[in-house]
């Protein structure tokens, strides 16, 4: 089973809806340890992305993902802007010209995306950031592909690992981003960036994993 161009478009649209639904939730998580803008910023960005959808209908996956990245870069702001922009730009570069993706293609794209976020944010595992959801998810995807799992199962294991990574940020003391200013007081709260990253991969499992 492969991932079609139309499925990628559907994934982006579905994620925009998920962000809309979770706007207040993400902002509330951010208010606890950051500056109360993550939900609003992501919502503004993906609203702009939705506005670009009609012109992307006949484009290749690389162009779609790069356009999402450039749109987020100029609309989101904050730290989430450059990080999610980098995520989609890097994934777009690995999928240039492609109209469908094999599981290996998807892994390659996600790997470049996650490495891009690491490079831009200079964050490592357990810094209490997006990376804590993304890296375990990438590893789970890799293992699933090696195990010969179906695309649906691989995406589900990927999303499950992101969920566990997100939940594991709760006890962590932040070492990157605005939450790090709180020191010990950042412990006990779930990281908003890890949460929006989990939602992205959860949406991928729901939309792209449809057999």
């Amino acid at each position: 089973m492969s991932i079609s161009r139309d499925a990628i478009l559907e994934w982006i649209k579905a994620y925009a809806a998920v962000i809309e639904e979770n706007k207040t939730y993400l902002t509330d998580l951010d208010a606890a340890i950051g500056d109360a803008d993550h939900g609003a910023n992501m919502h503004r960005g993906f609203k702009a992305v939705l506005g670009k959808m009609s012109e992307l209908a006949d484009k290749d996956i690389g162009t779609i993902l790069k356009t999402v990245g450039m749109t987020l870069l100029s609309t989101v702001g904050g730290a989430g802007g450059p990080l999610y922009a980098t995520f989609f730009l890097q994934a777009g570069m690995k999928t240039a010209g492609k109209m469908e993706l094999t599981p290996e293609d998807w892994y390659t794209a996600l790997e470049a995306a996650v490495n891009g976020v690491k490079m831009r944010g200079k964050a490592e595992l357990e810094d209490k950031t997006m990376i804590d959801a993304l890296v375990p998810a990438l590893n789970a995807l890799n293992e699933s592909i090696h195990d010969g799992a179906s695309m649906t199962e691989a995406l589900q294991r990927c999303a499950q690992a992101a969920k566990e990574g997100m939940e594991a940020t709760i006890p962590l003391v932040a070492r990157k981003g605005r939450a790090s200013y709180l020191g010990e007081r950042s412990a006990g709260h779930q990281d908003p960036g890890a949460t929006s990253s989990y939602l992205l991969l959860k949406t991928a499992a729901e939309v792209l994993g449809k057999a």
């Binding site: 803008d37 910023n41 503004r44 870069l73 100029s74 702001g77 450059p82």
Partner: peptide, 11 residues
């Protein structure tokens, strides 16, 4: 100027 309490963007 960015949005309230939000960094402006590179463009």
């Amino acid at each position: 100027p960015g949005a309230v309490f939000t960094s402006p963007t590179p463009d």
